[in-house]
């Protein structure tokens, strides 16, 4: 006798929404369970670090530099009104290290890395390459997901600090062109205002962003369906959802770090 199919609890749409949340929770738990288990696939992690880190450098360099120049240019006019143009290095340093560096890096990586992971894993899923790994007794989750998420979690903080540094350089170029400030003086002023908590928060924030970029890209790709259309959808959803979550996380972490400072 054919077993009866289970009926929906609410409706197809509502049920699948909650099932989606539960499945993503299971996916994240599966990552934490497997990340510390052997084998570690160090070679694959290094390859992914190269893909995420080194291959993103040109874009991060350009974006960071332009952000530094533009932010300095825009801030100068406002500060000059109050005769506080000399505060520019301090303002730019705080803005770049605390917020802009991690945020710009996360958004760039969400677009570049998140979509690439979503599309790559999605394509592997619909062309049965993930199933092929599984039937060959290879754990595809460990080999594909854990390595990629580890790589993004490690690389985004480094890229974020690099982005802040390049942004400061861009800012210095603009300041030097206008006020003829020396390199040492600019950076001395800039770094004097940055506390350990600022750097710690920025690094912590970037770790969270990096994890989000990796896990969402992998989740969307790993669960892609409906052929080539599904691959495009996975890549697109990976970017949109990651960007949304990055802003939410930014908001929460800023709030928490402000509370810590207050106490």
């Amino acid at each position: 006798m054919t077993p009866k199919a289970k009926p929906y609890i609410f409706s197809k749409g509502i049920d699948s929404y909650f099932i989606g949340i539960y499945e993503s929770y299971v996916f994240v738990c599966r990552f934490f369970k497997q990340v510390l288990q052997r084998p570690f696939h160090f070679g694959q992690i290094i390859d992914q670090c190269y893909e995420v880190g080194l291959k993103s450098l040109p874009l991060i360099t350009l974006t960071g530099f332009v952000t530094g120049v533009v932010f300095t240019k825009q801030s100068r006019t406002s500060l000059e009104v109050f005769g506080a143009a000399s505060w520019l290095p301090a303002l730019i340093s705080i803005a770049l290290v605390r917020a802009l560096g991690p945020l710009v890096t996360a958004l760039i990586c969400a677009g570049k890395v998140g979509s690439s992971i979503g599309a790559e894993l999605g394509s592997m899923k619909v062309s049965e390459q993930i199933d092929a790994m599984e039937v060959s007794a290879i754990n595809p989750f460990k080999y594909l997901v854990v390595t990629r998420v580890t790589a993004t979690t490690l690389m985004v903080p480094i890229l974020s600090l690099y982005c802040s540094l390049v942004g400061l350089l861009g800012s210095y170029v603009n300041v030097h062109a206008n006020e003829n400030t020396s390199f040492a003086h600019f950076f001395q002023n800039g770094f004097a205002t940055i506390s350990f908590l600022d750097v710690f928060t920025a690094v912590f924030k970037s770790i969270v962003f990096g994890f989000t970029i990796g896990i969402i890209g992998c989740y969307k790709g790993y669960n892609a369906s409906q052929g080539t259309q599904g691959v495009g959808k996975a890549a697109n959803q990976a970017v949109v959802l990651t960007m949304f979550l990055v802003f939410v996380e930014e908001l929460v972490i800023v709030q928490v770090s402000n509370w810590i400072k207050f106490f």
Partner: peptide, 19 residues
Amino acid sequence: LDALRLHIGFSFQSSALYD
């Protein structure tokens, strides 16, 4: 299951070669 899978060869319809 992984140990059993080593004794099973699966040839996919799409070949499923790693691109």
